[in-house]
Structures are given as C-alpha cells and as structure tokens.
Design a protein around this nucleic acid. Structure first.
Length: 367
DNA sequence: CCCTGACGTCTCCTTACCTCA
DNA sequence: CGTGAGGTAAGGAGACGTCAG
C-alpha cells in the first residue's frame, strides 16, 4: 500500500520519509504474519484521532498507535491482560476450566445423520463430554453472563427485547447431506470465541479442538470462525487506516499550503531585502509557538535574533541560498519545548503504529 | 546437506444463507 | 409479501512452513 502525497518542495523530503506500515502484508508474509498477528495487534491501538494530534513528541521517529474496538462487544482493543493467572499461555487452561454446555447448533447426536467423518467423531466425543457434565461451572471465562439464558437449544431465546435470533437455527435439523446450511452461532458461542480470539487470534490444533469441544462445534467450524474473524479484524483495521491516512493527507495538504504561503512570503522578503541572500547558508525554521520563521545559523540579523531561540543544525547549502528544511518537523526537533507544529503533532504518538517520519529531511551532503 | 512430497495452516476471494429495514 | 443490503459461515484456490523420507 502506498500513499502518494504531493506536498510541494518544502515537504517533499519529509514526505519521502513517510513510511507507512499498515499491516497489509501480502501473501508471502501471510503465514508468518498470521502467527505474529496477536502480538502485532497488541501493538496497535486505535486511539481517538484528537488525542493523537494532541501531545507533543520531541521524538524524531513518529509512531502511530491505533486502538480498535472489538466489533460487537464494545471492548477496547487490545484487550486488557487477563486479570488472573488462570489464562494460560496456550489458552487450554482456561478453556478446559470452563466447561459449559453449548449444545445449541449441534445436539450431540450419536447417529451423525449422514456425512460424518473424523470431525464428527470428535463432535460426538465432545457431546458426550458435555452431556456428562453440563453444568460444571469452574470456568474463568465470563460465562456467568450467559447463565441466565437457556443454552440448550431453540428455547434459548426468551423473546423479549433481545430476541436471540442467532440461537440454533441449525440445531433442529441435521445436515441431511444437502447443500450447505447456514449455521448460525449462538451469542454464547460467538462470545466465547470472541474471548478466545482476544487471547489468541490464531489457534493451534490443540486449542481448536478444545474450543470445539467446549462449544460443541466441529473443529472446522472453529477454524473457519477464526479465519473469518481475522478477516473482519483486518478489514476494520484497513478502514481505520484509510480514515487515518485521509486525515494525515488533509493535514499535510494544509501544511503544504501553509508552507507554500510561507515560502512566498520569504521570497517577497528576499526581494525587499536582497542582502539577506548574501549571507551564508541559512536554515530556516519556524518557531512553533509564534509560527514565525527564524533564521538559525545566520549571524545576528534582526529577524533571526528576534525569533530564533534554539539553533538548528545547519543545513547543507542549497543552490538558492536558503536551505528550507522541512520546517515543521525541523522546528519540532529544534524547539522541543515549544508547542509542536501541526505536522509534528499529527504524527506524535506514544507507541505502536509503525508509521515513521524522518524528522530532518536533509539533503544528502554531497559536497 | 539437499530435494521432494505430504500435511497443515494461512490469506484472499467468493458463494450461499440469513436477517432486517 | 417481495426485495435489496449487510452480516457471516463456509468453500476453494494458492502460498508458505514444517517434517519425514
């Protein structure tokens, strides 16, 4: 994914340094990315856009942090670490610990109804396990929230406001070997899977089997659910990324417009006071507080003495005599105490999102 | 050590089903 | 009641990593 931003000459260098890492890895990264997905996602935060633009960050490398919400649950993303030590590393612990019956979609049938296979055998085993201890409530998963529902099938939805439409359409009819049925996971199953997904976005076979056993689903169903869930997460991430990049683009465009105006003013100033151009190479930077241009490395001129507070590193002499650096980021770096300019503020973020902007877009010092 | 085929899992795209406005 | 949109479970293709032979 690339984002082409035409920012004009002043921002061109900085724009070139804009590295957008959006987790849009291609297929060759897919497997590895999939395995790292959980850790990577925990690095991402979808924060509010306003908060991202607020703080000042003297740190040169800008990192964007996004914090998504869990769709449908309204949970912050990434989820807070499990409060108790009960959530094991592999997830088997808490999964095994919370054994509740989810015989919603597939009642543990001994017959299998045509079409079975190895998975069906596992399901039968799962059903037997569930039927043996359907109310074993030793779990750490918040299944207590579901305790009020009837988990056992079509009567799970008491109607009312909630209207659990999702419960068990497929439970009252076996597959019959016809075209594929639209299985609808119950809310409880979805919530359980959601909780598991928060801990592990990918499943190893053991976890998959355990989940399938607990939810009374086929392992393939669990697998598919996780695949689709990852796809949805990625889609949501992409939407947020696009939205954020759109804002970035707007901000940069505005910044560019302002810099162009600034440049025009400087050129006008040059025509009025041409002796400025006989001075040595000068780095112009904008004081982010007063938003005035300061000439940092020039000898004491009236304007620079008035506005320049900290000396920026002298830039390489350019052909025009004025080395206009990427003023905003340079200003942010040169005057970290001041209020950051909009550009720096935009990209200031505590951690996470690997969007980095080089603070100083200096031309290569090719003497 | 290298090669190869089997296997499992992933992403991506698509289809089919279901619900709701 | 019919219909289109949106959500979602599931199928299939292709790629990749791992492992045994």
């Amino acid at each position: 994914m690339e984002l082409g931003l035409s920012l004009g000459e002043a921002m061109a260098d900085a724009g070139r340094e804009l590295v957008l890492g959006l987790g849009m890895g291609r297929r060759e990264e897919a497997a590895e990315a999939g395995r790292r997905d959980h850790e990577v996602r925990r690095e991402l935060e979808f924060g509010s856009m306003s908060s991202r633009c607020g703080g000042s960050s003297p740190e040169p490398t800008v990192r964007l942090t996004l914090l998504p919400m869990v769709p449908g649950l309204g949970l912050p993303w990434p989820p807070p670490p499990p409060p108790s030590s009960e959530s094991s590393e592999c997830g088997d612990g808490h999964l095994e610990a919370s054994t509740r019956g989810f015989d919603v979609n597939r009642p543990p049938s001994s017959g299998g109804g045509g079409g079975g296979g190895a998975e069906e055998e596992q399901d039968d085993a799962a059903g037997a396990a569930l039927s043996s201890s359907p109310n074993n409530s030793a779990g750490s998963f918040p299944m207590d929230d579901f305790s009020g529902h009837g988990l056992g099938g079509n009567d799970a939805a008491p109607g009312g406001g909630g209207g659990d439409r999702s419960c068990s359409r497929a439970s009252d009819e076996d597959d019959g070997g016809s075209a594929r049925k639209k299985l609808r996971l119950s809310k409880e199953q979805s919530a359980f899977l959601e909780e598991s997904f928060k801990e592990h976005s990918t499943l190893n076979p053991k976890q998959k089997l355990a989940l399938a056993k607990q939810l009374n689903l086929r392992p393939r169903q669990v697998e598919v659910w996780f695949q689709n869930r990852r796809a949805r997460t990625k889609l949501k991430q992409t939407e947020v990324d696009c939205e954020y990049l759109k804002r970035c683009c707007e901000t940069l465009t505005e910044e560019n417009r302002r810099l162009q105006k600034e440049l025009a003013e400087l050129r006008a100033l040059k025509t009025v006071h041409p002796f400025y151009m006989h001075l040595p190479a000068t780095t112009l930077s904008m004081c982010p507080s007063c938003e005035r241009v300061a000439s940092n490395s020039a000898p004491a001129t009236a304007s620079s003495a008035a506005t320049s507070s900290t000396a920026a590193p002298p830039a390489a002499p350019s052909s025009g005599g004025i080395a206009a650096t990427s003023s905003s980021s340079a200003a942010a770096a040169a005057a970290p105490d001041h209020r950051p300019s909009s550009f720096a503020a935009l990209f200031s973020s505590p951690r996470g999102f690997p969007l980095s902007v080089a603070p100083q877009a200096q031309p290569p010092t090719s003497s």
